[in-house]
Amino acid sequence: MSSARTVTRTVVRRLTRWGTASMLVGGVLALPGRTRAFGLQTLMWGAIDLALAAITRGRDKVPQAQTLRRILLVNAALDVGYVAAGAHLAVRTPTFGGRLRPTDARGHGLAVVLQGAALFVIDLTAARRLRR
C-alpha cells in the first residue's frame, strides 16, 4: 500500500502528462477539417485536466488514504458515466435541434469516450494503490 501523498503526486504527474498530450493533439486536430469536433473536445478536456493537476499540486494538505481512495473511486464511477455519455453521443448522433451535425456529434462523443476511459485508468490505478 502506498501513502496518500505518493499516490497524489503520481496522479498529478499522470494528469499533467495526459492533459498536456490532450491539449497538443487536440489543438492539431481542432484545425478546420474532419476531426475538428474530436480535436476541440480533446483540447478542452486537456485544459481541464491541467487545471485540476495544477490546483491539486498547489495544495499543501493531502487527504487521508481512505478519503483519497473514496474520492478516486467516485471519480472512477463518474468516468464510467463519461464513457457512457460519450458512447451515446457517438452512436446516436443527436443534433440538438440542428445546432450540431451528426459527424460533429460523433467526434465529440468519441473524444469523451477516450477521455473518460483514460481518466478511469488513472483513477482506478491510483485507488488500487491505496487498498487496505
Rank of each mutant, 00 (worst) to 15 (best):
V62M: 11
T67S: 00
R36A: 15
A21P: 00
R101A: 14
D79C: 15
L15G: 11
G19F: 02
T93L: 01
I122Q: 06
G86S: 07
D123P: 00
Y82D: 11
P32S: 13
R99C: 02
R129I: 01
F96D: 03
R59S: 12
R101Y: 00
R129E: 00
I122M: 10
P102L: 04
A105R: 05
T56W: 12
T10W: 13
A4F: 08
F120I: 02
T6I: 07
G97M: 06
T125S: 13
L29F: 14
F96E: 07
L130F: 02
R101E: 13
R69K: 09
V83L: 03
F96Q: 04
Q41F: 09
A4D: 06
R69W: 01
T42S: 10
A77V: 14
A47F: 10
P102M: 06
R14W: 14
M44K: 03
A90G: 04
T103Y: 07
G116H: 03
R34E: 15
P94A: 04
F120A: 08
L119D: 04
T125V: 06
L130W: 00
L52H: 08
A127D: 00
Q41E: 10
N75G: 13
T95F: 08
R14G: 01
V74G: 01
A105S: 15
L15T: 15
G27Y: 08
R9S: 13
R70I: 00
P102Y: 08
R9D: 12
A126V: 08
F96G: 05
L110K: 02
K61I: 13
A51I: 14
A54L: 15
D123H: 11
L24I: 15
L68T: 02
L73V: 05
